[in-house]
Write a protein that binds this DNA or RNA. Structure first.
Lengths: 145, 145
DNA sequence: CATCAAATCGTAATCATTACTGTTAATAAG
DNA sequence: CTTATTAACAGTAATGATTACGATTTGATG
């Protein structure tokens, strides 16, 4: 079920987007960090190191396009945005637990929406956001020691 | 239980912060918009209109201080930050449903954390974020018509 | 290979937020 | 009430992420 760079490139093709070496490198970079949100500024720094003189605009535009295709997930929380390779393009609805130490993402099953919708009679619920953070089991064990 | 500007000012006093006319005006502005998140840029615009030549820094600094005292709630979602007068300084744990049309905030009872903690054995959950948005009952009825 | 639209570059703009420094004014003590 | 102290403020300018734009390059297609 976990997708690879080639899977992502195939999606680009299917949508008549051009396969450039920059895009391939970006996807490769993101794909190498599965289950981790990476700060967009770090993606930017890496790309501009890899392709000296690469434009900021290109990087941000590509992230936006990748997101529209479901290849990555973006999160705009506070200061700067973060982005994560979407290992499962199927776009299943899910929520995340994010470890503040190692950055690992755990997908949660079940959605809290079910428990709340009956508190809002008449309202039309269009979306929601749910996220948990802390220390994953590994880091919790390590740090406590 | 709903707090007023004077209650907020009292908190400033208790914490040995000075009561300036700027701060009073800010709190008054925010207090007049209960259950609504206001964009910080709008607070900024209003204050600089009220006190021509007022400094951006003062406004942002005050919001941060108000937040530390629990007088307001801040939300940094995407583009610009939003802020809301905290009618209940008691800092009870709760979540929000936010109407995208009128901006009304409904506080939700019950916290989804309970339903998820057992999915993360060993992890140390330090925080979470939950939010729902859409149309409140009033707006849903009006817009549908 | 030739074509053409899509991607990219490179520069500069935008815009929210913050640093910094000298000045003002709220508070508490006399 | 007067004064001393120091937080709060004004004003200017910086920062830093993100985007606009015009010129150039390059991937896809035949």
């Amino acid at each position: 079920m976990t997708k690879t760079v080639d899977d992502a490139v195939a999606v680009l093709q299917q949508n008549h987007l051009k396969i450039t070496k920059q895009r391939r490198t970006m996807l490769s970079f993101l794909c190498a960090r599965p289950d981790h949100y990476t700060e967009v500024t770090q993606v930017d720094a890496y790309m501009r190191d890899f392709y000296p003189g690469m434009s900021h605009a290109t990087i941000y535009r590509n992230i936006k396009e990748f997101e529209e295709l479901g290849l990555v997930e973006q999160q705009v929380e506070g200061e700067q945005a973060r982005v994560k390779f979407q290992c499962d393009f199927a776009n299943m609805h899910h929520h995340h637990f994010i470890c503040r130490n190692c950055g690992q993402v755990t997908e949660l099953k079940m959605c809290p929406l079910d428990y709340f919708s009956d508190q809002l009679p008449g309202a039309k619920i269009e979306g929601h956001r749910f996220e948990m953070y802390g220390l994953c089991a590994n880091c919790a064990a390590t740090i406590e020691a």
